[in-house]
Amino acid sequence: MTKTTEDRAPYLVWPKGKASWQIRDKRRYISTGATRKPDADAALFEYMKRRDEDAKKAAAGSMASTTLRNILDIWADKRKRENPGTWERKWQYIYKTIYGKSGKMLLHAIDQKWAYWYEQERYEDGVEESTVRQELSTVLSAWRLARNSNPPLTDLPVPELDLPPSSDPREHFISRADAGRLIAAANKDYLRLFIRLCLATGGRHTAILQLTWSRVDLESGTIDLRNRSDRETVVERNERGRRKRAVRQKPRAQVRVEGLILEELREAQDRAASPFVIEHSGKGLGSVHRGFKAAVIRASLDPDTVTPHVLRHSAITWLMQDGEEIYKVAGFAGHSSARMIEKVYGHHHPDFQTSIAKRLAQR
């Protein structure tokens, strides 16, 4: 690609009618006063050195005026590209909250004193410590992105803020007896199958609703909850043009099932009128919340805590209570690492306090 005059670095020319070498910088001509080429080269070197120093000073002045909003915009653009669904559901509200409280503040004023002020402001709004922690963590995340952007928005080091404590992982789960009552309370075939599948596979309720018969192998007893076709794609522009990238999807697994659930799946397949395993009136379902909540109430369970997602928590918790190996549970849940399973569910495992019990017994 041919460079234009606007793209070129400064260079030497001797235009017709001039008495000395000239520096051509875009559309400007700067006289060197030199008639010898070596002297003109030296003048060009000094000119470029001064120009670079002036650019650095201008950049430093621009960085000094960088506000919290400026770095939040970098963070927001990244979130929108990588996970637009979560942006709409969650991150945009965090962005608006921080911007509304402190968006116009200069970065050099963001320190621990500000963090204490922000924390108290949010407590007066009625939010929990975990919410404040997430918002302050967002500021730090945006700051790191701004330092690594091209060009950098700031050269200030990321501050070390004293964050509020994180909340304990949510652990709502139901017992096997509760699950039996819930299944009995489900007055629709599709709802009963939905509950059984969630408990048998540990799958997220959205994965179960999106499950099609093409990913169910009744002969081998395997169900593939991974569905690459439903991943939303984002079109990005870069220096080479356009490219498509799939939006990140939460972990899903390929699992084996056996026993009663296989018989129920065979019966459901015989009467299927759509490609979806969970269907009603010949169509797939986008949600089962209304019917599920009614079944929860009929089963005398708490509808505020027993949601469809609790079925996944319950299946994983039961495996941990049964002493199943953690890495196998992680694979069943679709995670490549056992760290999250150990963090959230580890205390349900019978080996969790074995060493403590042994010490107490010895004493």
Rank of each mutant, 00 (worst) to 15 (best):
K283P: 01
D322L: 11
A9Q: 12
G85W: 05
A115P: 09
G291F: 05
R69A: 11
T2F: 07
D217G: 08
N70C: 10
V216H: 05
H313Y: 06
Q134T: 15
Y29N: 08
M1S: 13
A272E: 07
W21K: 03
L209N: 02
R226E: 06
R339P: 00
Q92T: 11
V139L: 05
N238S: 11
D351Q: 15
L260F: 00
T206N: 09
K293M: 06
R204W: 06
F292T: 03
G259S: 09
D351I: 12
R27M: 06
Q120G: 08
I326V: 15
G100E: 10
S20E: 05
R252P: 01
L44A: 03
S229Q: 12
V127A: 02
Y116G: 08
S287G: 06
G346S: 10
E219S: 10
A59M: 13
M320A: 15
R147L: 11
R339K: 15
T233L: 12
L193E: 03
I208T: 05
S214M: 08
R27A: 10
K49Y: 01
T2I: 13
L209R: 05
G346A: 09
Q92V: 08
S214E: 15
K244M: 12
R181M: 04
V306E: 02
D77M: 03
V158D: 00
P159Y: 07
E46V: 14
P159G: 06
G85N: 13
V288Q: 02
N83S: 13
A333Q: 03
I94L: 08
D39R: 07
A294Y: 02
G323N: 09
A295Q: 03
E53P: 00
I94S: 04
R8A: 09
R240A: 13
V234T: 15
S281T: 12
E239H: 09
K343M: 12
T305P: 02
G346W: 08
R312I: 09
T2D: 00
L260I: 09
P157Q: 06
D217E: 09
A200N: 01
D39Y: 00
A361M: 13
V158E: 11
A64I: 12
D168Y: 05
T305I: 14
T305W: 04
S220Y: 10
V158N: 00
V13P: 01
T32A: 04
V329Q: 07
R226I: 15
H172Y: 11
A60V: 12
G17V: 13
A185S: 09
A185Q: 02
R226K: 12
D224C: 08
L140A: 05
K56W: 03
Q269F: 13
R27I: 10
S62L: 15
R79F: 02
L193R: 01
V255F: 04
Q321E: 15
P157Y: 07
H313Q: 06
K96Y: 00
R170Y: 01
I326C: 10
H172I: 14
Y190P: 05
R204K: 07
D111G: 10
F45R: 15
A338K: 11
H335R: 07
N150P: 03
W91N: 10
M48G: 01
E264Q: 12
Q254T: 15
E239K: 14
